[in-house]
């Protein structure tokens, strides 16, 4: 199963990078969701995959049965999931508030903090973001 997960991680990474590079804030947020899934899967695969044996110890025993899943990456991922949720919620609110303020989700137009200095931009920029707020 590991090679399959490796490919999955690659697909998720590529998709998220592509989404983050699109000019749309909404798509950027989607990319954020995908990349945290990719990272979690990566950590999970890194600890080795074991089918169907959760790292639990039977009542009364001192040690888990041999061959249980690796508990360490699980603990790492568990907190990572909750944190990436916090990050996502913050990003969503930020995107929403940015939209309220600037009336656009086009990141190329969001130039309030660093107004254009010269024409050497990546590509054509439809409208100037030099408004002061």
């Amino acid at each position: 199963m590991e090679p399959i997960v490796a490919v999955l991680v690659g697909v998720l990474m590529a998709a998220s990078v592509y989404l983050m590079l699109s000019r749309n804030l909404v798509r950027f947020v989607f990319g954020l969701v995908l990349i945290s899934n990719a990272a979690n899967l990566l950590i999970f695969a890194g600890g080795g995959l074991t089918r169907a044996a959760p790292p639990l110890i039977a009542s009364g025993a001192d040690l888990p049965a041999s061959g249980v899943a690796n508990a360490l990456p699980q603990a790492l991922i568990l907190t990572a999931i909750v944190i990436s949720f916090g990050l996502l919620a913050f990003a969503l609110v930020l995107a929403f508030r940015a939209y309220q303020e600037l009336e656009t989700v086009d990141t190329d137009a969001m130039r309030v903090a660093e107004p254009r200095e010269d024409a050497a931009e990546l590509e054509e920029t439809p409208r100037s973001g030099d408004r002061t707020v």
Binding site: V82, F85, G86, A89, F90, V93, F96
Partner: peptide
């Protein structure tokens, strides 16, 4: 913390 932080965001929004 989880309850409080999540609800801070949800209720705020």
């Amino acid at each position: 913390v989880v309850v409080g932080a999540v609800l801070t965001i949800v209720l705020g929004i």
